[in-house]
Nucleic acid binder design. Structure first.
Lengths: 105, 105
DNA sequence: TAAATTTATCGTATATTTACGATTAACGAT
DNA sequence: ATCGTTAATCGTAAATATACGATAAATTTA
C-alpha cells in the first residue's frame, strides 16, 4: 500500500479498525459463531468443520486472538479456544457508539 | 491468497465479513464519524480534513458505499455523502447477534 | 464555447492477506 | 527415550488492499 498512513489517526480509530479487520473474513465469523455454540473448542474440531487446512485455521485463530476476541488455553497437547467476553463487549460497545448517531444530509 | 475459499461460507457470513472489511481501515472509521457529525458532506471537505489524497478518499468512500453504509447524492458538480441509516442498522443488528451469546469453555 | 471546479477512475508501486504443505514444538502415553 | 497426537510457525505463491499522481467525466460559471 505504498506508505501506511495509520499514524495519522487516533488510537481508538486504529483499534476499532483493527477489530473490524479481525472480523473481515467469513471463516473468522464462522469460528466466532462456532465458539459461541460449541462446548468443546479444540482446534482440531474447528478444523474438521471448516473447509480450510489446519495451518490456515491456526492463522485465523491467531488473528482473532491478536485483537482479544478469543482466548486459547492449553489443555495438554490440545488447545482449547473460547470467546473472550470482555473483548467482545468492548468491540460491541465501540461499534454501537459508531453506529448510534444517525443523521443524513 | 492463492485460491479464495469464500464460496464455502454462507451468504450471511460473507456479507457480515464484507461489512467488517469496509470498517477495517481507520480512515473509513473516521469518515463515518465525520458524516455522522457534519452537516455538509461534500467530498472536498472530507478531503480537507483527512491526511489523504483526493483519489484515496474517493476510494475509501467507494468501499463504504459498496456495502451500503453510506450513500452519495449528486448536487451539481459536487457529491454529497451521508450515512445510510438502514445499512448501519443492518450492520449493527448483525454484529449484535454475533456478539450476543457469550459462553466460555 | 471555454474555463474552472469537483469527484471518479486509471495505472501502478508497495504492503498485506490468504492459503497450504512442510516442519517444528509441546505434551502424553508407552 | 521414543512414538503418536495436536497445534503453531515457516516459507511461499497468489490475491487484495492502500496510496497517489495523472487523467477523465460531469457540471456550473463566465
Amino acid at each position: 500500500m505504498a506508505v501506511s498512513k495509520k499514524d495519522e489517526f487516533t488510537q481508538e480509530e486504529i483499534w476499532l479498525a483493527d477489530v473490524a479487520k479481525a472480523l473481515s473474513h467469513p471463516a473468522r465469523i464462522r469460528i466466532l459463531k462456532m465458539l459461541n455454540e460449541m462446548n468443546s473448542c479444540m482446534v482440531g474440531s474447528l478444523v474438521d468443520k471448516l473447509p480450510l487446512a489446519q495451518a490456515t485455521v491456526s492463522q485465523h485463530l491467531k488473528e482473532l486472538k491478536r485483537v482479544g476476541l478469543i482466548d486459547g488455553e492449553t489443555d495438554g497437547p490440545k488447545i482449547c479456544y473460547c470467546v473472550n467476553a470482555k473483548g467482545l463487549a468492548n468491540a460491541k460497545s465501540a461499534l454501537d457508539k459508531l453506529f448510534n448517531k444517525i443523521s443524513c444530509c
